[in-house]
Computed example of a mutant assay.
Amino acid sequence: MRKVKRTKVRGWRWRNNPLRHHSDAVEAWVVLATRATAMAGGAAVGVVGAQAMESVVERQRAGRQPVAAVLLETAPTGVRDVATGIKYDHVKAKVRWNDGNGVAHTVKAGVKPGAEADTEVTVWTDGQGRAVSEPVSPAEATARVALAGTGVAMAGCLVILVGGLTVRLRVERRATERWGEEWDLVGPQWGRTTG
């Protein structure tokens, strides 16, 4: 069996020819507008998403302060995740510190495994004196910002492309309906014999 080689003509919807319908030109414009909007819109929402994540990370880093605390108990060692078996690099243990007003705070905070009682540890607090997790490192902050910007950009592009595809399918469906209407008018004439 011989394979048929198809010739692809680029840009045929843009050229004037007797077989081109108005719907072909509309479809070409929809595709062009969708791609241009997806690139520009995706980049724009990606930048906005990255800036939003950057402000969240900066607020988090600005609101956390290190304080010196005393470990009240020896921290457990060899604690592993039940599901994965991975050893934790921080465990919860009781610590105490005094804030700027002289008020003593006692909480369970994340410390290194095996730390001895009565040793000084660094605990991160928020503005209310509550123990919080350590702020993200600059490298992790950069990774989060980049990941958020990329994810938002991809989601924005996807929404625009799906919208463009929906419009394109609607144009194609309407063109098919018009061709059907034209065939209903012309089709019966093909069955006539000339004589």
Rank of each mutant, 00 (worst) to 15 (best):
K3L: 11
V4M: 14
T7G: 07
K8G: 02
V9R: 13
V9L: 11
R10A: 06
R10Q: 10
G11T: 09
R13H: 10
R13N: 09
R13S: 06
N16S: 09
N17I: 02
L19T: 03
R20L: 06
S23V: 08
V26D: 00
E27M: 11
E27A: 14
E27T: 07
A28H: 09
A28M: 07
A33K: 00
R35P: 04
A38W: 06
A38E: 01
A40Q: 03
G42P: 13
G42A: 03
A44L: 05
G46F: 06
V47N: 10
V47D: 09
V47F: 12
V48T: 11
A50Y: 02
A50H: 02
Q51A: 10
A52R: 11
S55A: 10
S55E: 03
R59F: 00
R59C: 00
A62L: 14
A62P: 05
R64W: 06
R64E: 04
Q65N: 04
P66G: 11
A68Q: 10
A68G: 04
L72V: 03
E73A: 12
A75R: 04
V82M: 11
V82T: 15
A83C: 11
A83H: 14
T84E: 14
T84F: 13
G85S: 15
G85C: 10
K87T: 15
K87Q: 08
Y88Q: 12
D89H: 15
K92W: 11
K92F: 14
K92L: 15
N98H: 14
D99W: 10
G100E: 15
V103R: 12
V103Y: 06
A104S: 15
H105D: 12
H105W: 12
T106G: 06
V107G: 02
A109D: 02
A109P: 02
K112Q: 14
P113D: 06
G114K: 05
E116Q: 12
T122Q: 05
W124M: 09
Q128M: 05
R130A: 08
V132P: 05
P135T: 00
P135R: 00
P135M: 01
V136L: 13
S137P: 03
S137Q: 06
A139N: 04
A143Y: 03
A143M: 13
R144W: 08
A146Q: 08
A146T: 10
A148E: 03
G149R: 01
T150S: 15
T150R: 04
G151V: 13
A153I: 07
A153L: 08
M154G: 07
M154H: 04
G156W: 03
V162C: 09
G163F: 04
L165M: 10
L165N: 11
L169N: 13
R170D: 08
R174H: 09
R174Q: 15
R174Y: 01
A175I: 05
E177N: 03
E177V: 07
R178I: 05
W179Y: 03
E182L: 14
E182W: 12
W183K: 07
G187F: 08
G191Q: 09
R192Q: 13
